[in-house]
Design a protein around this nucleic acid. Structure first.
Length: 270
DNA sequence: CTTTAAACCTGCTGGC
DNA sequence: TGCCAGCAGGTTTAAA
């Protein structure tokens, strides 16, 4: 599944559909979750919130559905009783009297007691959510200087969910380009001005993507959630190797760093 | 400790 | 049209 901005968009739409309404039915493809088909109906979904790329769906009976879509999970909002997608495998269906939210293909799904979530192996390791509105550039700049992060190459650090949750591979290329910083640099070897630029870009780029409804099919990427997308986030460098840099017109190059593809302008990112 | 590589889950795309 | 290899915006695990 996509990155932080797309995950938060999905959470928004799912919440609009079912939060505050009592569940009429619940269905799970996973054997260990079958008991909840009997206990969840009648409870109310109190919130659906992203934590990085994970989604937490809370019920008012003290239990929470954890899901992570990896590359392939897809959420849909449909009318109650509808199951329009026949090609993917349905994994979760939560239904109110009016609407249903359906999770297809995802394999990382579990239900936890609220009080146990702090010990969840993935959630417990996440850094602050990059799209959290209370996160400031000053706080990000400070975090960059923490010993656990300061010595690591930005190409690796920017994908580490323990640094900032919700960052991902397209955001990595875009953030480094906007900040004008080469991916091999580390936080420790940045000047004060560079660190400030990077911290600001780490907030601005994900927020712009979220605000413009994430990535669109025209970029060559999938965008399963985006049924209402007039705008869309435009890549400046990601997936654009060989094309001219929007700032200096030199060719954008593609590299492999941290095991993932990364795009940059060698002139603008020294 | 940091970094890299491979494995894993599933779906899509492009080539034959 | 059908099949298959390769790739993917992610994460974990093991190895270097």
């Amino acid at each position: 599944m996509p990155e932080g901005p797309e995950t938060r968009r999905a959470a928004d739409q799912l919440a609009l559909a079912v939060v505050g309404q009592p569940l009429a039915s619940a269905w799970f493809a996973f054997p260990e979750l079958k008991p909840f088909e009997a206990s969840l109906p009648g409870t109310t979904v109190t919130s659906i919130t992203p934590h990085g790329k994970a989604l937490l769906t809370r019920f008012d009976n003290g239990w929470t559905l954890y899901s992570h879509n990896q590359l392939y999970g897809v959420w849909q909002v449909v009318d109650a009783g509808e199951r329009p997608d026949t090609t993917r495998s349905l994994r979760v269906a939560l239904e109110t009297s009016e609407r249903a939210i359906l999770l297809y293909s995802a394999s990382d799904v579990a239900i936890w007691r609220d009080e146990d979530l702090v010990r969840h192996p993935f959630l417990s390791k996440l850094g602050p959510d990059v799209l959290d509105t209370s996160l400031t550039a000053a706080a990000v700049a400070k975090r960059l200087q923490q010993p656990a992060f300061a010595g690591r190459a930005l190409s690796v650090l920017l994908l580490d969910q323990g640094f900032l949750a919700g960052m991902g591979n397209y955001l990595r290329s875009e953030v480094l380009f906007v900040a004008g910083i080469a991916p091999q640099r580390t936080p420790a070897d940045l000047t004060v001005a560079e660190r400030k630029r990077l911290a600001q870009a780490l907030l601005d780029v994900p927020r712009l993507s979220y605000g413009t409804r994430g990535i669109l099919p025209s970029t060559g990427m999938r965008a399963e959630y985006l049924t209402d997308t007039p705008e869309g986030f435009q890549f400046k460098v990601f997936d654009r190797d060989g094309l001219p840099c929007p700032q200096c017109s030199k060719r954008i190059v593609r590299k492999e760093l941290g095991g993932r593809r990364l795009y940059l302008c060698k002139t603008c990112q020294q």
